[in-house]
């Protein structure tokens, strides 16, 4: 039994039919081919599957696709956040890159609410996203760097 679902993904309207048991992450990856969002546990622990749902980071393995109906989803492919992404490259805030999309989503969620985060704020914001490679230090630096550049942009832009 499949049901229709409609949502906005990365700014585009998407309609499809899915089994009600299909998770949002499987819908994004398997139905829409958006493989930038990763799966690490399907248990809600690792945060690799994080996407923005109406601007707020959520774990897409813990939601059914139908629960995102009529809402707006942003994945790493649609992040379009050059300053943040560039800061991740500048500090080499990754190694294998598997956690990176989830980290970027967590960081975006933080910076939208807290443009001038402390180190503790940053650590808190990414504490639900596991990175096994980096030990987090260069990720914390990347987010702080992005925050300061975004604030500068704000002032000058």
């Amino acid at each position: 039994m499949s049901v229709p679902v409609t949502m906005t993904v990365n700014g585009r309207a998407v309609s499809d039919t899915v089994e009600p048991r299909v998770t949002l992450v499987d819908f994004l990856r398997d139905h829409l081919g958006l493989t930038g969002t990763h799966v690490g546990c399907e248990q809600g622990v690792c945060g690799a599957c994080s996407v923005l749902l109406d601007g707020v980071p959520v774990r897409s393995c813990l939601l059914f696709a139908v629960q995102a109906g009529n809402r707006s989803v942003t994945t790493v492919e649609g992040l379009d956040d050059a300053i943040l992404q560039d800061a991740f490259e500048e500090t080499h805030a990754m190694q294998c890159g598997y956690c990176t999309p989830g980290m970027l989503i967590a960081a975006r969620g933080l910076l939208s609410d807290t443009p001038d985060p402390s180190e503790d704020d940053i650590r808190e914001a990414i504490s639900g996203t596991l990175c096994r490679c980096t030990g987090y230090v260069q990720i914390v630096e990347a987010i702080a760097l992005a925050a300061s550049r975004l604030r500068q942009d704000e002032r000058h832009g």
């Binding site: 493989t35 492919e77 992040l79 992404q85 991740f88 490259e89 080499h92 890159g97 970027l104």
Partner: peptide, 14 residues
């Protein structure tokens, strides 16, 4: 790093 920050890495599940 470029491909990872843009979600264009190619992991086996992809």
């Amino acid at each position: 790093d470029r491909r990872f920050v843009t979600g264009t890495g190619r992991f086996v599940a992809d």
